[in-house]
Design a protein around this nucleic acid. Structure first.
Lengths: 228, 228
DNA sequence: ACGATGCTTCGGTTACGATCGAAGTATGAA
DNA sequence: TTCATACTTCGATCGTAACCGAAGCATCGT
């Protein structure tokens, strides 16, 4: 049976706890240094260095050096999607990292997934966009309606401009905490950046959580109401 | 960093070569016995037994005993999708199982992916269905048009009947050999069974290849022509 | 030039898990 | 009952890879 691609290699790469923690941290979309990644992996810098070298050789990471720092990021969106889909799968099988206790409620509420909004708020946003007819959900796919295009324009997002990029405009991404889809793709990214720009939300310090300001939360909830 | 689901566990499960080979074999959709799986993994029966126990405990497999045999299958479609998406990812990073030589051309041409058709022919089928207007491809999603529904009726597939099942009708599945989408979901399954029923094609003995008869190939190609 | 910081490489230890031989259990056939 | 097949469990071996201490580069600040 020497046919087909080798799943075992990438499986083994993701299969080490230290590496898995690093990848999960990087799926927050931010570039991190080797030292930071060593911390999230719970290992020393030397060990982290060898791990990172393996991940890079395996095509999961890219690094760029900047001064005396080395910043690591996930290789591309496909890698981020793989990590996130494995998280969804693991959650569905009850493989939780420690105890299934209360966990981080803030993380379930709103967090970053690569470059877009996930968690309860991410799912709510997509639900609301679909319910109001701004996005068409056909089968597994999503597309922006003309109505939605003008509505997004009001929020300050130029959809036609996003369309010209090579990256898909809308993509649905399975949310591991909600087990439902939220909005990814360039539109998902644009929406989240808009929230940041308007000061409605900000990233938490050392985590993937997204924290809304009281005013931002009010705006967000009125902009994306739950269907009646 | 004790947040979120544990990717490392399933990563490690898939990360062992013997287990990965077993899973790849099972993603052919057929139930296999422990002895058969030991063969594809290249290990003894005892070792295979412990591997299979781990995979089952991890929620990747289910077994049902039948007489003195034990038949193993992938736990569900989500598992099959995960395996296949990892294959796609591995292929995109050039992780091939041995040498990237000529490989199995039959496997690239047509093979089973869980329960539907993949490979060159699988991709061609979806392309043709989209080009002829039988299936709408919106963003990442697929849906059958009224026109397509009547056309499929002629082949002998009752779409409205398939719609009533809980499983999604159309789903696109990334093909690792072609690096393009082919048709999965209940419609993909129905199409492949139809080909089998009509005697157009059959499964190869110990492989995931699908072999078309000369007559079946002719019918298939005329039914799903390439766009001009 | 000097030390400090960020990271890699080397060497050696350690631990985990994959592996198989042998023995044990279950089902079916004679 | 007896033997054969299909599989699991036990026990022991062995190899690999994760790990860290220490030393080696590279870059920056002063």
């Amino acid at each position: 049976m020497k046919e087909g691609p080798d799943i075992a290699q990438i499986g083994a790469l993701i299969g080490d706890p230290a590496r898995a923690n690093m990848l999960a941290a990087l799926s927050g979309g931010k570039a991190l240094t080797a030292t930071e990644l060593a911390a999230v992996g719970g290992i020393t810098l030397q060990t982290a260095s060898t791990h990172l070298a393996k991940l890079e050789a395996g095509g999961l990471l890219t690094q760029r050096k900047q001064g005396r720092h080395r910043y690591f990021t996930l290789a591309d969106e496909a890698t981020a999607l793989l990590i996130e889909s494995m998280m969804g799968f693991a959650a569905s099988r009850g493989h939780l990292r420690h105890r299934p206790g209360p966990k981080e409620p803030a993380l379930r509420k709103a967090r970053i997934c690569y470059d877009h909004l996930a968690g309860d708020y991410g799912v709510r946003m997509l639900d609301s966009l679909v319910a109001s007819g701004a996005i068409d959900a056909i089968g597994e796919g999503l597309s922006v309606t003309p109505k939605g295009e003008s509505r997004l324009q009001c929020i300050g997002i130029d959809v036609s401009c996003l369309k010209s990029s090579r990256r898909p405009l809308c993509r649905s991404c399975l949310d591991w905490s909600e087990r439902r889809a939220h909005l990814a793709g360039s539109l998902g990214k644009a929406l989240l950046s808009t929230f940041f720009d308007k000061g409605w939300a900000r990233r938490a310090a050392g985590s993937r959580s997204v924290i809304f300001s009281p005013e931002g939360e009010k705006q967000f909830l009125s902009l994306f109401p739950l269907e009646a």
